[in-house]
Amino acid sequence: MPQEPLAAPTDRLRLLIDPPGDAAWNMAVDAALLAGRHPATLRFYGFEPAALTLGRFQDAAAFPELASRAVPCVRRMTGGGAILHVDELTYSLVGDAALLPTDVHASYDLVHDAIARGLAHCGVRAHRVTEHRPGPGPRALRAAHCFAVPARHDLVAPDGRKLCGSAQRRTLRPRARVLMHGSLPLLPRAAQPFVASVAELSVTPPDRAALIAALADALTGALGLGAAQPGTLAADEREHARAVLGQLRTDRDTLLGSSR
């Protein structure tokens, strides 16, 4: 539901840089950040091993790769299509609702334009889709891959392939909070030619650290915040993530069961 900002945005952005890791843990940490109290956190992470995440309401039975147990799978708390996370940089921007515009469209404009500027700083050409495109309807979305269907707000390569897709979760209780996370493929994917990658779109692909620095600078600027402050997960956030992890692993077994 639309929500009014309840607090002024912080002037400090906590920066978390995590190494690529387990899919369920990745989602558990994002859930803990959303449930937490830190006003503004920017997290970078990745997936090792490669994994599939499903949108909040997608149909696991529609994804045959789950039946073969070829990849680990976890359900996101955000919507949209399924994402195969492999050789990518993943971000999450989490905080009080006031961190981002109340209007969902405006919030995507702000974040994705900042990411586009960060990419441009690294010599990567991408632009945001500004026109409305009818996305997959409810039935098609149950089985859709996020990157196969570039939609309004997505960042795309000059040839139209999707380079960055994001999703949001907005909560009202116990506090008005927002989570936006997204996926930025770094290398070309033979099995998913519809996915663009950073490496394809730059003459000299940036290394992970340079890309993170450029994106963090662009996002802090767009949010009107000072330089991001490197930080760590707080003890209560880590505890919450461990609790969520158990639930996600139970859900994962359910996903695998329902895909047979």
């Binding site: 909040r56 309401f57 999703a167 209780r173």
Partner: peptide
Amino acid sequence: EIESVKAVSDIV
């Protein structure tokens, strides 16, 4: 919960 364009939100 309701999912709209790019966001999942609570219904209170």
